[in-house]
Lab assay of single mutants.
Amino acid sequence: SDIKVHVGDITVELHNVSEEFARLVEEALRLGLNEEQAKEWAHKALH
């Protein structure tokens, strides 16, 4: 599904992702990663 993740003043739109993936992206953003890094990190975490 499509999910918007908000962290501080950052909003990341995720398309066709699981809630778990979105949660991992949100966690990575909170750790200070940028959007691209957060998506990559979440992807690796799920595989």
Rank of each mutant, 00 (worst) to 15 (best):
K4E: 10
H6S: 14
E40I: 09
S1N: 13
G32E: 01
I10F: 09
V5R: 03
L31G: 07
Q37G: 05
L24Y: 12
A38W: 01
A45Y: 15
I3C: 05
A45E: 11
E20F: 15
Q37M: 10
G8W: 02
A28R: 01
E13K: 08
K4R: 12
T11Y: 10
K4I: 15
I3Y: 13
F21E: 02
D2M: 15
H6G: 09
L24V: 02
L33D: 00
F21Y: 15
L31Y: 12
I10N: 07
N16Y: 06
D2E: 11
R23I: 08
E27V: 13
I3H: 14
A45S: 11
L46M: 13
W41V: 03
A28M: 04
L24P: 00
N34M: 04
V5F: 03
V25Y: 08
L14R: 04
A28C: 03
S1C: 07
S18G: 08
R30L: 13
A42C: 01
A22M: 07
H47Q: 12
F21N: 00
T11W: 10
R23F: 08
L31K: 10
R23N: 08
G8P: 06
E36T: 11
E35T: 12
V5K: 04
V12I: 14
N34L: 04
E27F: 15
H15A: 08
K39P: 01
E36S: 11
V5C: 04
K39R: 14
A45D: 02
H43C: 12
E20T: 13
W41H: 04
V5H: 07
L33Q: 03
E20I: 13
V7N: 05
E35I: 15
E19S: 13
K44D: 09
L33K: 06
V17H: 08
G32V: 00
R23G: 05
I3K: 08
V12D: 05
T11G: 03
L29N: 01
W41C: 02
S18L: 06
E27S: 12
K44P: 00
L46Q: 07
A38S: 07
S18E: 05
E36A: 05
E36D: 14
D9Y: 03
A45N: 12
W41F: 13
E20Y: 14
D9P: 09
G8K: 04
I3A: 05
F21I: 02
H6A: 14
D2L: 14
R30C: 08
L24K: 09
E36Y: 11
K44H: 09
V12Q: 04
A38R: 00
L33M: 15
S18W: 04
V17C: 06
Q37P: 01
I10E: 06
E27L: 15
L46F: 11
A38D: 00
L33H: 07
G32I: 00
V17E: 07
F21S: 00
W41I: 03
I10R: 07
H6V: 15
S18K: 05
N16F: 04
H47F: 07
Q37W: 03
G32S: 01
L31W: 12
D2G: 11
V25A: 01
E19K: 13
S1L: 15
V17T: 09
H43Q: 10
R23K: 13
R30Q: 10
G32F: 01
L14W: 02
Q37D: 13
E20N: 10
E40C: 07
E19G: 10
R30E: 06
A42I: 03
N34S: 12
S18A: 07
G32W: 01
D9I: 09
H6Q: 15
H15T: 10
I10K: 08
E20K: 12
V12W: 01
V12P: 05
L33G: 01
K39S: 03
G32L: 01
G32T: 01
L14E: 04
E26H: 10
A38K: 00
D9T: 12
I10H: 09
V12A: 06
T11S: 10
H47D: 09
E19D: 11
I3S: 06
D9R: 04
V5L: 13
K4L: 12
G8V: 04
W41M: 04
D9K: 08
H15V: 11
N34G: 10
D9A: 13
E40P: 00
D2A: 14
E20G: 09
N34Q: 05
L24A: 08
A38P: 00
A38L: 01
E26Y: 15
L33W: 07
K44C: 10
T11R: 04
E19L: 14
T11A: 05
V5Y: 02
V12F: 02
E40R: 11
A42T: 01
I10A: 08
E13R: 07
H6F: 02
V7H: 11
L29G: 01
H43E: 08
A22Y: 08
V12T: 06
F21P: 00
F21A: 00
N34H: 04
Q37R: 08
V12M: 07
K39M: 14
N34I: 02
K39L: 14
T11D: 07
H47V: 11
S1D: 10
L46S: 06
A28K: 01
A42H: 00
W41R: 04
L29E: 01
G32Q: 01
Q37E: 13
F21D: 00
E26K: 12
A42D: 00
V7L: 08
L14H: 06
A22F: 07
N16V: 05
E35S: 11
H43T: 11
A42S: 01
E19T: 14
L29M: 09
N34F: 03
H47W: 05
E40M: 13
I3F: 14
E36M: 12
E19F: 14
V5Q: 05
V25K: 02
E13M: 06
W41P: 00
K4N: 12
E27I: 15
E35M: 12
L24R: 08
A22I: 07
L14S: 04
A28S: 02
K44S: 12
I10S: 07
H43Y: 15
Q37Y: 04
K44V: 12
A38N: 00
R30S: 09
E35R: 08
F21V: 02
K39G: 02
L31P: 00
E13Q: 12
E13N: 14
K44W: 15
I3G: 05
I3M: 09
H47R: 10
L29K: 03
L31D: 06
L31E: 06
E13W: 03
H6D: 08
E40H: 12
L31H: 10
E27H: 15
V25Q: 01
D2V: 15
K39N: 03
E27M: 15
E40G: 03
A22C: 03
A45K: 15
L29F: 03
G8R: 03
K44F: 11
E13H: 11
K39T: 05
E19V: 15
N16P: 06
T11M: 11
D2R: 09
A22R: 08
